[in-house]
Amino acid sequence: MSALESVLDVVGAVLVVLGALLALAAAIGLLRLPDVLSRMHAATKPQTAGLVLVVIGTALLLRTSVDVWMLLLVGAFQLITAPVTAHLVGRLAYRSGGVRPDLLRRDDLADRTDSSD
């Protein structure tokens, strides 16, 4: 194994560890944050960034394999779908009272009286 290859191995493994730490932070946020909308943030941003870091790290470790393309596709797909789910859930959460009003500093949406219920 050449020097370059072992450097790539370590860099890739470090990226995987960083991604795992972001996933851990997301998990802690999911437990600690006060309401559904806040937990949504933890499940969207650090989780997605963590997954993308793990994808890049794993791709660096595999390098020559054709499976690298599949992994990159997984990362791209997660980047596109995570915000869609976040918006769907966020919208439902606001409408069904999944937000604690005492923790909202301001609420511009409350002023707009919506037609549906």
Binding site: S6, G12, A13, V16, V17, L24, A26, A27, L61
Partner: peptide, 18 residues
């Protein structure tokens, strides 16, 4: 290899905790 292997094992443990 052993450095990368060790780091990846740590990552797996962290992921298990999450």
């Amino acid at each position: 290899m052993s450095t990368a292997g060790f780091l990846l094992t740590v990552a797996l443990a962290v992921l298990g905790l999450s």
